[in-house]
């Protein structure tokens, strides 16, 4: 499977030379199309694996478990295109959600608790951004440190307890439907469109690509690199707290271990979507498609009663295969 997708990708990428190409061509000849083909393949395979799979309502319902990570992955896509990475969003989700729960439990009304969660998300993002843009430390290791720190602080704050008893209007965002589509999915689609436009047609979007392609060149071109990077880390913190609130609403309770291991899922989504790990290339469309690919694969395996052993193995393999494939496509196209 991977060999053919790589070959296909190479053929496409081979035709792509530099940035100056008509827009339709840039859209068509990219790793995203590989993701799209895989998505269709996965759907067919999953339908054959289990007769219970092909049910749109079920797939949409199951998607809400991954959508929270996917919304963060959209912003993570921008961060990675800009040549940085953030491994701490899952921990930020947990910490901000625990802050929400704690503030609420202390007697504050829900809007205030939500505000506290969002502000703390910004603060955590700013903390990451400070290390990266002011102290100029590599984001990959800084966010490993903050991943442990934030998760640890969530544990200190909430202990091992489940904080729950939220008001009923706040609980169950995944059961609120528009047609047959759960609200989180709507949010995800809207966020994808907004960020896709931001990255595709605004000057900031172009600057993000430039920073990722060559930071030196970007600085010389007068782009305020550090400000944009700081903005991206802030956005990452903010979107993590939004995702954390969505999880809190879905579960009706929060605990320090919420979203644990989510960093793997987020990075996996971005990589599956064909974003280049070294920055400068990638798209929201790819991340959007990859989200559904992941939903199909994960849900398909679970409903087919495939044991978690195999699932962990497949997820790990997928991550490696997807970066190897993407990397290969881009390396070819650079020649």
């Amino acid at each position: 499977m991977s060999a053919s997708e790589q070959r296909q990708g190479v053929n496409q990428a081979g035709r792509e030379s530099a940035a100056a190409k008509p827009r339709w061509k840039i859209l068509l000849v990219r790793p995203e199309s590989v993701t799209f083909v895989l998505l269709i393949l996965a759907t067919i395979v999953a339908s054959h694996l289990s007769p219970f799979f092909a049910d749109l309502g079920f797939i949409l319902e199951s998607s809400t478990y991954y959508i929270e990570f996917a919304i963060v992955a959209l912003v993570l896509t921008l961060v990675i295109i800009a040549g940085e990475i953030d491994l701490s969003p899952a921990a930020m989700m947990a910490l901000t959600a625990c802050i929400f729960g704690t503030v609420l439990k202390a007697g504050a009304p829900v809007p205030l608790a939500m505000a506290a969660s969002l502000v703390s998300g910004l603060a955590l993002g700013a903390f990451n951004g400070f290390f990266v843009t002011v102290l100029r430390l590599p984001s990959i290791i800084v966010t490993i440190g903050t991943l442990i720190l934030y998760r640890g602080l969530a544990q200190v704050l909430a202990g091992d307890k489940s904080i729950g008893s939220f008001p009923s209007w706040f609980v169950g965002i995944d059961y609120r439907m528009v047609g047959i589509v759960p609200v989180p999915v709507i949010i995800f689609v809207l966020a994808s469109i907004a960020l896709g436009l931001f990255l595709g047609i605004t000057i900031y979007g172009r600057q993000i690509y430039q920073i990722g392609t060559s930071e030196m060149a970007a600085i010389h071109a007068g782009i305020r690199v550090r400000r944009i990077k700081m903005g991206l880390f802030l956005a990452s913190g903010l979107v993590s707290s939004i995702a954390g609130l969505m999880t809190a609403s879905r579960l009706g309770s929060v605990r320090y271990d919420l979203a644990s291991g989510g960093e793997l899922t987020m990075v996996l989504i971005v990589m599956l979507g064909g974003t280049y790990i070294f920055g400068g290339r990638g798209s929201i469309l790819g991340t959007f498609l990859a989200t559904w690919l992941l939903v199909i694969i994960a849900t398909g395996m679970t409903v087919a009663n495939i044991a978690i052993n195999a699932q962990l193995t497949v997820m790990g393999l997928l991550l490696i295969v997807s970066i190897v494939a993407t990397n290969w496509i881009y390396a070819r196209s650079q020649r």
Binding site: L264, M271, L312, T313, G316, L319, I320
Partner: peptide
Amino acid sequence: IIVTLGTLSLY
């Protein structure tokens, strides 16, 4: 870091 994040799950 990304490769070993993958093999962390794989292994």
